[in-house]
């Protein structure tokens, strides 16, 4: 297990149009701003942008990628900031805030070229060996 203050290895996610659309559809989110650039522009956005469910899924993936397949997500709390537009890259970084037994709390930040797309806190447990 890790210790408070540990930095998780960063994960770089290319924000492709395909990722945005596939994530929106896989999360059953058919808001046009997540798949139709014309309608997104009409609503004042420069392009389509990633929906919050996909961001949530990416944050969860980042944590379980780092902590291994036995890690269990307990809480994921995220706040969105700068939108993820196609062509950008988001780099997820994590810092272990606290560790109590098999439970760790991790501060996650995902930054793109505009700013912080997502900031949040994830609580994860990793069972001891043999459990």
């Amino acid at each position: 297990m890790t210790a408070a203050g540990d930095e998780l290895p960063p994960l770089s996610i290319p924000i492709t149009r395909t990722l945005i659309v596939a994530g929106a559809v896989a999360s059953r989110d058919y808001q046009d701003v997540h798949h139709d650039s014309e309608l997104a522009k009409e609503k004042g956005s420069p392009d389509i942008f990633m929906n919050i469910l996909t961001t949530n899924g990416l944050v969860g993936r980042y944590i379980t990628d780092c902590f291994g397949e036995r890690a269990v997500l307990r809480k994921v709390a995220i706040r969105l900031g700068a939108p993820n537009y196609p062509g950008d890259t988001m780099v997820l970084c994590g810092t272990v805030v606290s560790v109590e037994g098999d439970r760790a709390e991790v501060r996650v930040v995902g930054a793109n070229s505009i700013g912080n797309h997502v900031t949040g806190t994830v609580t994860v447990t990793v069972p001891e060996d043999g459990s």
Partner: peptide, 28 residues
């Protein structure tokens, strides 16, 4: 599977006979 493909999640916990859903799918 569609969710895992979209977000690039290869966690084996989400496949196979004892598969669970990615917890972050809750809202989906």
């Amino acid at each position: 599977r569609h969710w895992c493909e979209a977000v690039g999640d290869a966690n084996p916990a989400y496949t196979g006979p004892d598969a669970i859903a990615p917890p972050t799918m809750l809202q989906a």
